[in-house]
Design a protein around this nucleic acid. Structure first.
Lengths: 150, 150
DNA sequence: GACTTATCATTCGCATACGAACGATCTTCG
DNA sequence: CGAAGATCGTTCGTATGCGAATGATAAGTC
């Protein structure tokens, strides 16, 4: 009786784990795909994280490095490296907060503002290209879902 | 009434670029969230990529390192490192392909198989936890969308 | 004012990720 | 057979990403 083993608790669960159906695995691949498209649209000139910093600075203006990291979803160690690389390229400015000796204030340089303006169309292209496989209503729902599991 | 406020630049319809609405930015955060949940579920014992290799090997059996990388969506340089770390932990075996001197054949060790069996419930928990913010129908649609933009 | 706690930045170590260059090996074709 | 091209694995360099430890500074408490 019951040779296929429908013992609802154990082996049934064992067999239906398919890697290609798992959120994490799909999320990783989706991000890889987006990173590739992003690089194409930007001509390899900038990474998504670097762009995120520029875009956030353009949005809110000067900001402490720590807060900037929180706004752009980056660890303190990560934001440090990203800012460092943007500094080398003279796209951002860094100064000590005169009112709080702990903080570093980061802002867009003129070059950084120009880079933001110049690449804004590329950023839109990257977003559009990434979602191109989805229908218009699916895109909206997909973005809502993504935000929900943030 | 100029509800958008004062116009400091020639902004307007160009400047509706909001970082927090972009797919790439949301994808990155979703993956960060999942990585954290995954680590929690696994007790920090394994990374998502390492688990992907184990799960794929459990699914298809012995496999060349190169093909394994393609199945798990990893660059040749990446899969090399992941396999190396799994080798150190004795979770996988590696041997030269007797029929093709270029290839390395990777397979699960007994320990690796045991680790897979032991962690399978954790993997399910991680997937479920990641999607916990979505309704049941939304989960299915979300996964379909993720697969579509792979 | 002195002590405790909190916050910020830096650093280290480890683990993905990918492009590019390289050598070794297999396959194909002339 | 032998040269050309394809495939596989390795290595290097660069860029996220995170946990943990450390030192500097600020804020809160007594």
């Amino acid at each position: 009786m019951d040779p296929a083993g429908h013992l609802q608790d154990e082996q049934n669960e064992q067999d239906d784990y398919v890697l290609d159906e798992q959120v994490g695995f799909l999320l990783r691949q989706a991000q890889q795909r987006h990173a590739g498209l992003f690089s194409d649209c930007f001509g390899g000139d900038m990474t998504p994280t670097q762009w995120a910093v520029l875009a956030k600075l353009a949005e809110i203006g000067e900001c402490s490095q720590n807060l900037l990291g929180r706004y752009t979803a980056m660890d303190v160690a990560t934001i440090k490296g990203v800012v460092q690389r943007l500094l080398v390229r003279h796209l951002v400015l860094r100064r000590r907060d005169p009112d709080d000796g702990r903080q570093l204030l980061i802002s867009l340089s003129q070059e950084g503002r120009a880079a933001f303006d110049r690449h804004l169309p590329d950023a839109r292209k990257a977003s559009t290209a990434t979602l191109s496989a989805l229908s218009e209503p699916d895109r909206a729902l997909f973005l809502r879902c993504l935000k929900a599991l943030r």
